Amino acid sequence: MALLTLSGITTGRGRRALVEGFDLTLHAGRVCHLSGANGTGKTTLLEVAAGLRTPWQGQVTAAAARHWLGHRNGLSAALTPMENLQAWCDLQADVSSAPAEALRALGVYPQRHRPCRQLSAGQRRRTALARLLLAARPVWVLDEPLDGLDVEGLELVATLVNSHIAEGGALLVTSHQPLPGSIAAVQTVDLRSP
């Protein structure tokens, strides 16, 4: 079943086209890894796929709710992980899990009451990734989700992704580093400079 379809997408930054005539169908149970050098439009294309940016041409068809996680963590440095997640929950209509449980699953529960500015880069990234567990959205659109993670964190992400796709979800992801080899059902699409 197709959860997300990009048809004839052309988009870019400023007046410069980065992606032209791009087609992609993301099916349930699949992972699509967009790869390519800096400046090839990976983040811009993900923003289009997530519904955050309107393409210059083409159409995005989302058959399911989408989760967006950008390469920036989107956390307030002054707030704790618990406060950051609760603030996110307060803005959502489809929250189905508690912040404490998500932080436990990502291994940052012991740091839940420390300001995020005092956390390591990996702990901040894990806190941001915890948002994925707060609302059941079938399509995850993730920009550089592995940044700042150690080996244990990488395997944790692989476990989360495998569980998500086993339950019928799908993932569209960019990463300059290889995805953990334990992630199943990966299709790699290489974006080249136009």
Rank of each mutant, 00 (worst) to 15 (best):
Q123V: 12
V108L: 08
V108C: 08
S120H: 00
A185I: 03
L149D: 07
H33L: 14
G74Y: 02
P99T: 04
R66V: 13
L106R: 01
L85G: 04
T25Q: 06
A185M: 11
P138E: 15
P180D: 09
L52V: 06
G39Y: 04
P138L: 15
Q118M: 13
T127K: 04
L85S: 07
G58I: 07
D94A: 04
D150H: 03
S96T: 08
A93G: 12
G29K: 07
P178K: 00
A17W: 06
P81F: 01
T159M: 05
F22I: 13
V157E: 10
E152Y: 07
V151Q: 10
K42H: 08
N73D: 10
P55G: 05
S35D: 10
R117H: 11
A17D: 09
T61S: 13
S7K: 07
L154G: 15
P180N: 09
R104H: 10
A102D: 07
A184D: 15
P178E: 11
T61R: 08
G14A: 14
A105V: 09
G153P: 14
F22H: 09
L106M: 15
A135Q: 03
S35C: 12
A136F: 05
A77C: 03
S163R: 15
L79G: 06
L149N: 05
A87C: 01
I9H: 04
L75I: 03
R16D: 15
L26I: 06
A170R: 02
T174N: 07
L24P: 06
A28D: 11
N84Q: 11
R114A: 10
I9Y: 07
T5H: 06
S120C: 12
L3K: 00
L91K: 14
A130H: 02
K42F: 13
R104A: 13
P194V: 13
G169P: 11
T54G: 03
N38I: 05
T127I: 05
L119A: 09
H27I: 00
T127N: 02
A136P: 04
W88E: 08
M82C: 02
L119Q: 07
A77W: 03
G169F: 14
R104S: 09
